[in-house]
Amino acid sequence: MIGFLLRRLLAMAATLLAVCALTFAVFYLLPSDPAAQFCGKDCSADRIELVRQQLGLADPLAVQFWHYVTAVFAGRSYGTGQYAVQCDFPCFGYSFQSAQPVWDLMTDRLPTSVSLALGAAVLWLLLGVGAGVLSALRRGTWLDRTLMIGTIGIAALPVYFTAMILLYLVVSVAGLLPYPRYIAFGEDPVGWTTNLILPWIALALLNAAIYARMTRNSVIETMAEPYVRTARAKGLRERRVVGRHGLRPALTPVATMLGMDLGGLLAGALITESLFSLPGIGKLFADSLNKADQPVIMGITLLASFFIISSNLVVDLVYAWIDPRARLS
């Protein structure tokens, strides 16, 4: 188990390094001049040169890469002497656009994105798994058919379309909810919820439909397993047969998928955040892409990779915890 964890952590570090190198290489190949960008408009050639020196952009690529990587763990200082700027751990450099530390930019936006992602995930899990289990246990009834037809319909709607419809009906026509904006949970939990509920729904519906179908199949399959028959043969109550012996294994693949989706969700929050103009990581990323703001793009890419990889690791650990067969080997 320890060995397994060690191997996985090593692999994780290697992957992050590779992602880092790749983005680095891509930017190196782009024609734009980061120093000029950082310096701003009406900058003299001398000043641009100075900035170049300060940011370390004149060093060979390998050296720049080395500095970048070490800064993440140990911080770094830019320039020397009186111009020296200390960038503390974890240092992802400064935005070329706003000259703010990338780490601060990201941590400012993170709560919005995490609120959006987690809320949506909870919603689609409840809806999807609930509908899936219900459908499976009432297989062949009108309820099953209605639910499954519903999922097909929902799965066909693009996210932006759902978002528009929701905004129009709920906010503009009915005026039930305010136009979404981000309110920190700590400040006003109710406001947090009422403001985010529409984005949650928009983001969750598609996944809820996918999860419902997947859960239904998984439950139907598991309920036909010989060990479920054994549970009945033991004389257990049907509730226990379903809940303990059937649902646990049936929901294992759902948990696996959730882990993968959560990691990707942060990266995929882009559309929803832009649609509802919420100041999250996704929006930050879109803006940075427009402006070719290399440090921010790299920072977010790494952050997203980190989330994806670590949620995969968490999934594997959870899996090993639920299913003892996965513990060996």
């Binding site: 397993e225 010989p226 060990y227 028959r229 054994t230 549970a231 009945r232 043969a233 033991k234 004389g235 257990l236 012996h245 646990r248 294994p249 639920i322 299913d323 003892p324 067969r325």
Partner: peptide
């Protein structure tokens, strides 16, 4: 009655016992 008065032994114990 199941399990109590009448019990069953299935063919393939690996699949008939719960893996978890």
């Amino acid at each position: 009655l199941r399990g109590r008065r009448m019990a069953m032994v299935f063919q393939d114990a690996l699949t008939a016992l719960h893996p978890y």
